[in-house]
Design a protein around this nucleic acid. Structure first.
Lengths: 103, 103
DNA sequence: CAAACTAGTTTGTATAATAAACTAGTTTAC
DNA sequence: GTAAACTAGTTTATTATACAAACTAGTTTG
């Protein structure tokens, strides 16, 4: 019981931040997504979206594939397998709290 | 679907912070608890425990009942009804992430 | 009477999230 | 053909936060 409580202190901060939790959740539902899609779905500002995507990339949880659509740059973001398992682990740790109804 | 994603941006930050999530979870399981109990179960330092308890108190999520046991001060902390419903709401908002299996 | 304990508060530092401003090029409307 | 709007971000600066460590103040135990 107190073992599952201790899971909470070790929650992955990279994923735990609401903005990034949103992004990871969004990306876990699709193959890949571009900047504009994430911008609209997340309702973040461009700056914040950029920074949070960078943090997720630094952590190795997502990867960005930069290409050109005609002459326009186009970037697709997708969860890596590392990102997927980190998200799975995060959900496991949290479900110990959320799963148990106290009342 | 994207409605539930938006729930994540509105996550209650007071509860979301892992240290406080731990405390709220601990307090939701018992009638009340004292400082030493929370200190041991949460594995926080005294300073952090004190600060986090103050934040929860400011938010109206817990209340502290200060008494004396003989000559020693003794404080019992308990979740308020506001705290209970905030925790319930928090868990509902998060369930959009925890509930849907992506794979 | 000194050390350890209860129950914290205060302070200082380091990390962080956020918004706003900026960059650089492309496309569309007039 | 040029100004406005769009894509796709990055950089900067401000604010907030968490955290550890030091401090306070009294009490109890050896």
């Amino acid at each position: 019981m107190s073992a599952s409580i201790q899971n909470l202190s070790g929650l992955d901060r990279v994923i735990h931040e609401p903005a990034r939790l949103m992004l990871v959740t969004l990306l876990s539902a699709v193959e890949s997504a571009d900047f504009l899609y994430l911008l609209k779905e997340s309702d973040l500002t461009k700056g914040n979206l950029s920074v949070h995507l960078s943090k997720l990339e630094e952590a190795g949880y997502i990867e960005a594939e930069k290409t050109f659509r005609g002459k326009m740059p186009h970037t697709e973001y997708r969860l890596t397998s590392k990102g997927k398992s980190a998200f799975d682990q995060y959900r496991k740790n949290l479900s110990s709290v959320l799963g148990v109804k106290s009342k």
